[in-house]
Design a binder for these strands. Structure first.
Length: 652
RNA sequence: GCCGACGUAGCUCAGGGGUAGAGCGCUUCCUUGGUAAGGAAGAGGUCAUGGGUUCAAUUCCCAUCGUUGGCUCCA
């Protein structure tokens, strides 16, 4: 093999020979001109490279375009540089933090110094970006020494880049330059700014430098760009669509829940229909829990401060939580409960436990109160008073694995029954750099973490792992679901805890007649009723299956003449345990149908002369239009059948 | 908590230094209509709250409260 040739393996399995030093762009060009125009970067031996970077050795090459996630990523990262260039041109002397691509778009953190910048200036920046993009400036990669780099940003006076440089090793530092802007960056980048055809700067926000709230807050500018104007329009249309699924809007429209300034921030009021929905969800889970061997308990909303001193909650959160409530004369301190586990531990201690009693599975829809920072409150997803579908499993160490796997099954059953298909399972571990955030010894943490890792892998779950996301008393397996705007929320959670049993001195008598320490598994398949309902709303747009829908039917008489028959139908449905009502308004049928459709009621039953005469109803399913006339008795049987099916996943 | 934006009728929103408007909803009347909006009339607002500037503030300024997009946090 000559030194001058390289073998390039392409994803289709073909291998082609090129001159050494060939670029991905040239490879693309050898395939087709159109492809070459669209190539943004290339994956060379698994690493994303600039399309213009010479390939010197035999390699596998995957050309990346806008249709590849990595292509998009590169595109947006380059767009961040373009935005920085525009900003520097408009606001000389500003300093830059970091500017990465994110899930949909990019941002750059900027220190504007004394210069004013607000949302209304974004348009100006967009225009400048468009102007610079049209210049089709190439993104040029240069390798620099650490000293050169320090010198450049020292002269420029950008302390943020200097700080970033401090952590980098000499010999691995690259600059990228396009037009008049040079940035410290490991790349890769798209060939030139000309690819960026549609630009939208979406919002600005404060963001702490290096995510540290003790450090300076920079201005973060978010944006998104596309290679075609049409794609930007589609993206904006998608955002508009997402607004329709906003649970706060749906909660108001469907009269599910509300907030009142007078009651207080983050304290939801459940309206009758929302309560109906929530109670149906709770009943669904309770039924599954009875099958899985859980027992229900009820504990008070407050507990003596000493309970939380024992659990460690007071030490970890006492400063940031609602202050203790005092008895009037004795000044005894009570806390609003932030978690149910301490109460459940006390139930465990009610009497001596034998190894034969375990596992003990204690479930409670327990309402808890936490002082969440005001800036964090968000609709029903982040509130200060909420109800967990909580349970604690007290078991022997040899039972942890089996119990944990059974809980995974329960969570999967719940998710499946409610139609959540796109969820991510996340193993949330302790931050090894920051152990003082947690209680307990390394030894028990290792046991708990490996218990989770083993059980999830035995279940064959595809997981991601995040450090620093554990609870203070133990690691978790979290089930994350996205909202309408693609933001991830933790719903289900399962936690292994060796610590609270020690703190509460929980024991059981083993077969050896010795005292042993049980292990606790904390778990909540919904997470909280509030957040679960919120995410369910965003995922279903409020179009609930029959069994969940707060209103299951509405009877629509053609005119007031058929009111009696409508009432008769209503009565029979009520006797069949369905919830709904008759729309007796003095409106035309078209109007009644429209309103019922918009209220997302699953069954609309239209009754008029024909139906009254034949004891039938004309059925319209929400979203599906007229489905013809049906005998009332047969309909009731069908609806009951539909309910049965709903509780078994994988129907239809 | 921090940075930014916003707060006008039940809802969605327009307006703007001289004490307010639309559509929907609501009430009443007419209409008795067959599968996504029938017609008419009417009621409804201390323009979030508190200060300041001004002859005059809902409008401008400040603060507070609330909402919201992020950041940080999240038992």
């Amino acid at each position: 093999m000559s030194e001058q040739k390289v073998k390039i393996a392409l994803p289709d399995g073909s291998v082609k020979v090129y001159e050494s030093g060939v670029t991905s762009h040239q490879i693309a060009l050898s395939i087709s001109e159109g492809l070459a125009r669209n190539v943004l970067a290339a994956k060379v031996n698994g690493e994303v490279w600039d399309a213009s970077r010479p390939i010197l050795h035999d390699s596998s090459v995957q050309l990346l375009t806008w249709n590849d996630d990595e292509g998009k990523n590169t595109f947006w990262h380059s767009s961040a540089h373009l935005m920085a260039e525009a900003l520097e041109a408009l606001y000389p002397g500003i300093k830059f933090g970091i500017g990465p691509a994110v899930e949909s778009g990019f941002y750059y953190d900027v220190d504007f110094g004394d210069q004013e910048f607000n949302a209304s200036d974004l348009e100006k920046v967009e225009q400048k970006m468009t102007e610079l993009a049209r210049q089709k400036n190439a993104y040029l990669r240069t390798e620099v020494s650490k000293n050169e780099a320090l010198d450049y940003f020292g002269t420029k006076g950008d302390e943020y880049k200097l700080e970033l440089l401090a952590d980098l090793e000499d010999g691995s530092i690259t600059f990228y330059q396009q037009g008049g802007f040079t940035d410290l960056c490991r790349g890769p980048h798209i060939p030139d700014t000309g690819h960026i055809k549609a630009i939208k700067l979406t919002n600005i926000a404060g963001a702490y430098w290096r995510g540290d709230e003790k450090r300076k807050q920079l201005t973060r500018l978010y944006g998104v760009t596309f290679p075609k104007k049409k794609e930007l329009d589609e993206y904006l249309a998608l955002l508009e669509e997402a607004k329709k699924r906003d649970h706060r809007k749906l909660g108001r429209e469907l009269e599910l829940f509300a907030f009142s300034e007078k009651v207080g921030q983050g304290l939801p009021l459940w309206l009758p229909k929302g309560t109906e929905l929530r109670e149906k969800l709770a009943a669904f889970l309770k039924k599954a829990q009875v099958k899985a061997g859980y027992e229900s308990v009820i504990t008070p909303h407050i507990g003596s401060k000493s309970l939380y001193v024992t659990s460690g909650h007071y030490e970890k959160y006492g400063q940031d939580s609602f202050k203790p409530i005092l008895t009037p004369n004795e000044n005894e301190e009570f806390l609003l409960k932030p978690m149910n586990c301490p109460h459940h531990c006390e139930i465990y201690k009610f009497k001596p436990r034998s190894y034969k009693d375990l596992p003990l599975r204690m479930a409670e829809f327990g309402t808890v109160y936490r002082y969440e920072q005001s800036g964090e409150l968000h609709g029903l997803t982040r509130v200060r008073g909420f109800t967990q579908d909580d349970a604690h499993i007290f078991c022997r160490p040899d039972q942890v694995n089996e119990e944990f796997k059974q809980v995974i099954d329960l969570v999967l059953y719940v998710f499946e029954s409610l139609g959540f298909k796109d969820f991510v399972t996340q193993i949330s571990l302790r931050d090894p750099e920051n152990k003082q955030k947690y209680i307990g010894s390394d030894d028990v943490w290792e046991k708990a973490e490996s218990a989770i890792i083993e059980a999830t892998s035995e279940k064959g779950l595809k997981t991601i792992t995040k450090l620093g996301e554990a609870a203070f008393y133990g690691p978790k397996l979290d089930f994350m679901v996205k909202d309408a705007l693609n933001r991830s929320w933790q719903l289900g959670t399962i936690q292994v805890d060796y610590n609270l049993p020690i703190r509460f001195d929980l024991e059981y008598v083993g077969s050896d007649n010795q005292k042993h320490r049980p292990v606790m598994i904390h778990r909540a398949p919904f997470g909280s009723m509030e957040r679960f309902v919120a995410i369910l709303l965003e995922n279903t747009e409020g179009k609930f299956p029959l069994w969940l829908s707060p209103l299951q039917y509405i009877v629509l008489p053609i005119s007031e003449k058929y009111a009696d028959y409508a009432n008769e139908v209503d009565q029979q449905l009520k006797e069949g345990a369905f919830s709904g009502y008759v729309d007796h308004r003095d409106e035309k049928i078209g109007r009644k149908i429209r309103d019922a459709e918009l209220s997302k009621i699953p069954y609309m039953m239209i009754v008029g002369e024909k139906e009254a005469a034949s004891k039938s109803v004309s059925i319209r399913r929400q979203g599906a239009g007229d489905t013809g006339s049906h005998d009332l008795g047969a309909l009731l049987a069908y609806m009951k059948h539909e309910l049965e099916l709903s509780f078994t996943p994988d129907k239809e």
